[in-house]
Design a protein around this nucleic acid. Sequence first.
DNA 1: TCCTTACATACGCTAAAGCGACTATATGTG
DNA 2: CACATATAGTCGCTTTAGCGTATGTAAGGA
Lengths: 136, 136
Amino acid sequence: MAGKRTYNVERFFQALGDNTRLRLLNLIGDQEVCVCYFVEILGGPQPKISRHLAYLRSAGIVQARREGKWMHYRIVMPPHIGATQVLRQTLEWLRKEKQMQADRVRLTKACCASAKYASLDGAPLPAPVAASCEVC
Amino acid sequence: MAGKRTYNVERFFQALGDNTRLRLLNLIGDQEVCVCYFVEILGGPQPKISRHLAYLRSAGIVQARREGKWMHYRIVMPPHIGATQVLRQTLEWLRKEKQMQADRVRLTKACCASAKYASLDGAPLPAPVAASCEVC
DNA sequence: TCCTTACATACGCTAAAGCGACTATATGTG
DNA sequence: CACATATAGTCGCTTTAGCGTATGTAAGGA
């Protein structure tokens, strides 16, 4: 243990400095969400989503887990208490933004009626949402 | 009042995504600090400091006030409660970072012995520091 | 084994950021 | 008015970011 490197604050905030990435983080929240939902909700080309997820991964803000064909993303709280606080606050802030709320509504609807979305047919539900979705 | 535009979250975080700007914000803290101190503490060419301050201004994170030859910068809390919380948390986080602490120590020393710094001779002291500086 | 699905990565481009060096502006001073 | 000081803005350049398009890859199904 020669000395743990200081957390990259700059990189952390850079990762938050893009609206697509903020929307992704907002959609994930405290769940574990499959990429196909991001593509469905945010629209646009899939590689765009993938690249932003890669950016968030490289900044250490999210982690991916493979489950068969699907990739699930979740937010990992930083090893730094300060960063954790800021990240939590940020997520709370996003919750109050109009566009972010709309996104979340669409995610809920999508995962409760995934059969209706051709692109989501058979897609794995977001983890905690599956248990607590009040609409289903 | 047609409807207030949503606060630019993206821009907010972009402004925090640079180490020089983070150091500036850390030096300002809850005070009002003269540019000459930034130049003295951070080193490097003065235009660099000025440009970063301009960026922070354009993002609405700081405000400048002229007093004779000198410009004083202070942090302005965003009109958005969420942003305010995040900004406060961020400043607290910075306080715990080693480099940031070192910067603050140097600021304190500089303003308590401004006569010793040729470039700071006669420079106005940071506002609240002048009253609460325990070293002077 | 071949094909599809779900996702990631590479490529070429444009736009924005950051930097150093220079110039401009505003205020105070002699 | 001439000049020094404090700070801001401009210019040319390099780097990074973001985008769309095309391609690569890993897993599952036929």
